[in-house]
């Protein structure tokens, strides 16, 4: 009886230890986001503080600057932020209709076999790593852009251009947009669909006017997620952006520079202002994503309420 008692006590103690351990791990996992933001913030803000070892940088000039030249020590990210926004939004604009229509096709229109096949295509596209998209973009998309530019009478830098970045990003955010849209469309209650059909609307009318309208909140959430992807996409974009030294770039055939390509290109030393300033650019990237998400979520709420 006594041994049994000890065993129970031990088990109870173990049980308590484990429950604390699970909690600790969950807190640890959740705290990484705080750690990420905190440390990137501390390191990113340091070049603008007085007493910075490589010479203090003017914050306002950094945020509003239109020239970024590491060889001259001039760092301005204002135009880079605009470039990033332009490239990402245009990519979304291009990818959005195709994604939504594909999602509608998979969820409602396609025959069953075709739908499963298409779903696999979307999943495969989602699993392609970003460097592989980058190699494809550098090898194929730049050639297409170059040919297009020639027919318009422009000369490109080997095809590296704003347009190439837009096309690349449009392809890269397509799987995200599509799978989110599929989820949203499948979640639409069959009641409204049947009501629409009963009122005499055709299947197609129902799909386009009723289902898509009912799913718009979820589709919009996908767009927000896709846009976040587009902002943060790094290696592939850096392969075709071309890294213009000043800007902003509005000509689609001209080279451009995004926040992520700025952080990656020419990375050699791991000390000095040129290295530290990349953390500041990273901080700007985080802020851009955060602000954009906040605004779009507010918009989404208003749209969602209008159903």
């Amino acid at each position: 009886m006594q041994i049994d008692n000890r065993c129970v006590k031990r088990n109870k103690l173990l049980d308590r230890i484990f429950s604390w351990l699970f909690l600790a791990m969950a807190v640890l996992s959740a705290s990484f986001i705080v750690v990420i933001i905190l440390f990137v913030f501390i390191k990113g803000i340091s070049p603008f503080l007085p007493g910075y070892e490589y010479g203090q940088v003017d914050l306002l000039a950094f945020l509003t600057g239109t020239v970024y030249r590491q060889d001259q020590g001039v760092y301005g990210v204002g135009f880079i932020v605009i470039n990033t926004l332009i490239a990402s939004f245009l990519a979304l604009l291009l990818s959005f209709p195709i994604s939504v229509l594909t999602a509608l096709f998979i969820a409602k229109i396609a025959p069953k076999h075709l739908a499963t096949g298409m779903q696999s295509v979307v999943e495969l596209l989602a699993s392609v790593p970003s460097v592989v998209y980058g190699v494809f973009a550098a090898g194929v998309i730049t050639k297409i852009v170059d040919a297009l530019a020639t027919s318009f009478g422009y000369v490109t830098y080997g095809g590296s251009s704003l347009l190439a970045v837009i096309l690349l990003l449009a392809i890269m955010i397509f799987p995200t947009l599509t799978s989110m849209s599929i989820t949203a469309i499948r979640a639409v209650s069959p009641d409204i669909e049947q009501a629409s059909l009963a009122l005499g609307a055709t299947k197609t009318q129902t799909n386009f006017k009723v289902v898509l309208t009912a799913a718009k909140s979820g589709i919009f959430a996908g767009a927000i997620l896709g846009l976040g992807r587009a902002y943060g996409e790094a290696t592939a974009v850096a392969m075709v952006a071309g890294n213009k030294l000043f800007g902003p770039t509005f000509n689609p055939f001209d080279i451009t520079r995004t926040l992520t390509s700025t952080m990656l290109v020419g990375l050699k030393e791991t000390t000095g202002l040129d290295y530290d300033i990349r953390f500041s650019v990273g901080l700007v990237l985080i802020v851009v994503i955060f602000v954009s998400n906040a605004i779009l979520n507010a918009v989404k709420k208003r749209i969602g309420n209008q159903v």
């Binding site: 996992s29 986001i33 990137v40 992520t260 990349r278 990273g282």
Partner: peptide, 20 residues
């Protein structure tokens, strides 16, 4: 907190890794 981790761009993870 854990859900937000999904949305962090991988390049930012790189910055965190090298500092933290």
């Amino acid at each position: 907190g854990i859900d937000t981790l999904t949305g962090v761009p991988s390049i930012v993870y790189g910055l965190m890794g090298v500092t933290v």
